[in-house]
Computed example of a mutant assay.
Amino acid sequence: MLEVENMSLAYGNIEAVRGVSFTIVDGGIVALVGANGAGKSSTLNAISGLIPIKSGSIRIDGQSSAALKPHEITRRGIVQVPEGRRIFGRLSVEENLLIGAFSRTDHAAIAEDRDRMFELFPRLKERRRQVAGTLSGGEQQMVATARGLMARPRVLLMDEPSMGLAPLVVEQVFDTIQAINAAGTTVLLVEQNALMALEIAHHAYVMEHGEIVLEGPGAELAVDERVISIYLG
């Protein structure tokens, strides 16, 4: 479904990602973990078409995405929930969700999906007309996630969904990620909270200084001594 091959990218003269390769197939949760600045978010932004790559390739269903604009990548089913939520703070919760379906014209199905989001996130139903910028951090993460799901993604790219949230809320976020995956959406998860990410990931990649240094089943990496010593303390 999604293939990244030997991808490198740079910001000016600073190379942020070097020779990264991985494949995302239907049905799983794949985690990219590593320290801050390892290149995880840059990798997601490149997949989403937000930043150009220097070399290598990104392919969706076997076809290069190099010529596609971000909204066209979204239409191909690759949808990002960005770091820091980036909701539309002056719009209501419901308006934020409907913006997630901007590329769709199946109005009846959009309404059904909105109602499904309210079932997945009952708190948002209670606050559907509330200005989104007045919500708590955890509630704003719900809005950002629901907005992404409104595009009916095949692969949901989630960038640091637990950032800045209280421990109890973080647990709820990861429970939601598993529920989303169980409902049929593939998830590519970028997280600094390596332990929790590896606990739910079917497969995982460890990034360091812009390169993938380890990969394997999430459960195995969670008990790997190298991962524990470097990332989990």
Results as ranks from 00 to 15, higher is better:
residue 139 E to P: 07
residue 173 V to R: 01
residue 194 A to F: 05
residue 121 F to E: 05
residue 136 S to A: 11
residue 181 N to S: 10
residue 144 A to L: 07
residue 165 L to F: 07
residue 143 V to W: 07
residue 170 V to R: 08
residue 191 E to D: 12
residue 132 A to M: 11
residue 181 N to K: 14
residue 134 T to Q: 12
residue 144 A to P: 02
residue 123 R to T: 13
residue 123 R to F: 03
residue 169 V to K: 08
residue 121 F to Q: 05
residue 199 E to T: 11
residue 149 L to H: 04
residue 190 V to E: 00
residue 137 G to F: 09
residue 162 S to G: 07
residue 146 A to E: 06
residue 169 V to T: 11
residue 158 M to P: 00
residue 171 E to Q: 14
residue 120 L to W: 13
residue 165 L to W: 06
residue 192 Q to H: 07
residue 124 L to S: 08
residue 135 L to W: 06
residue 157 L to G: 03
residue 184 G to A: 12
residue 146 A to G: 10
residue 172 Q to S: 13
residue 153 P to C: 06
residue 129 R to Y: 12
residue 127 R to V: 07
residue 168 L to D: 05
residue 131 V to I: 15
residue 164 G to W: 10
residue 183 A to P: 00
residue 119 E to H: 12
residue 142 M to Q: 14
residue 166 A to W: 07
residue 161 P to K: 01
residue 158 M to V: 15
residue 141 Q to I: 01
residue 181 N to E: 03
residue 136 S to T: 13
residue 200 I to T: 00
residue 147 R to G: 02
residue 145 T to L: 15
residue 162 S to K: 08
residue 184 G to T: 11
residue 167 P to F: 10
residue 196 M to G: 03
residue 120 L to I: 14
residue 141 Q to R: 00
residue 174 F to N: 04
residue 134 T to I: 09
residue 174 F to A: 06
residue 128 R to N: 05
residue 195 L to E: 14
residue 161 P to D: 04
residue 182 A to W: 00
residue 153 P to W: 08
residue 126 E to K: 14
residue 120 L to Q: 11
residue 137 G to M: 12
residue 146 A to M: 09
residue 193 N to T: 06
residue 181 N to R: 15
residue 137 G to C: 10
residue 183 A to I: 03
residue 170 V to F: 06
residue 196 M to S: 04
residue 140 Q to G: 07
residue 192 Q to I: 08
residue 164 G to E: 13
residue 148 G to I: 02
residue 119 E to G: 07
residue 141 Q to E: 10
residue 119 E to I: 10
residue 161 P to G: 08
residue 184 G to Q: 11
residue 145 T to D: 03
residue 121 F to A: 10
residue 130 Q to S: 12
residue 196 M to Y: 00
residue 175 D to F: 01
residue 156 L to S: 06
residue 138 G to Y: 09
residue 123 R to K: 15
residue 157 L to E: 02
residue 199 E to D: 13
residue 151 A to Q: 03
residue 196 M to N: 02
residue 168 L to H: 06
residue 136 S to C: 09
residue 194 A to I: 05
residue 194 A to V: 14
residue 126 E to F: 04
residue 149 L to W: 03
residue 157 L to D: 04
residue 178 Q to C: 13
residue 121 F to V: 11
residue 166 A to K: 10
residue 134 T to K: 13
residue 167 P to D: 13
residue 201 A to S: 12
residue 120 L to H: 02
residue 138 G to M: 13
residue 192 Q to V: 08
residue 122 P to N: 11
residue 119 E to V: 14
residue 149 L to G: 02
residue 135 L to H: 07
residue 168 L to P: 00
residue 151 A to E: 02
residue 172 Q to F: 01
residue 187 V to C: 04
residue 188 L to R: 02
residue 175 D to M: 03
residue 132 A to K: 08
residue 154 R to Y: 00
residue 129 R to P: 01
residue 177 I to P: 02
residue 153 P to D: 06
residue 125 K to H: 15
residue 143 V to E: 10
residue 151 A to W: 03
residue 133 G to D: 12
residue 195 L to Y: 05
residue 154 R to T: 11
residue 149 L to V: 08
residue 165 L to C: 04
residue 186 T to Q: 06
residue 191 E to F: 07
residue 191 E to A: 10
residue 180 I to G: 01
residue 144 A to I: 09
residue 170 V to I: 15
residue 164 G to Q: 10
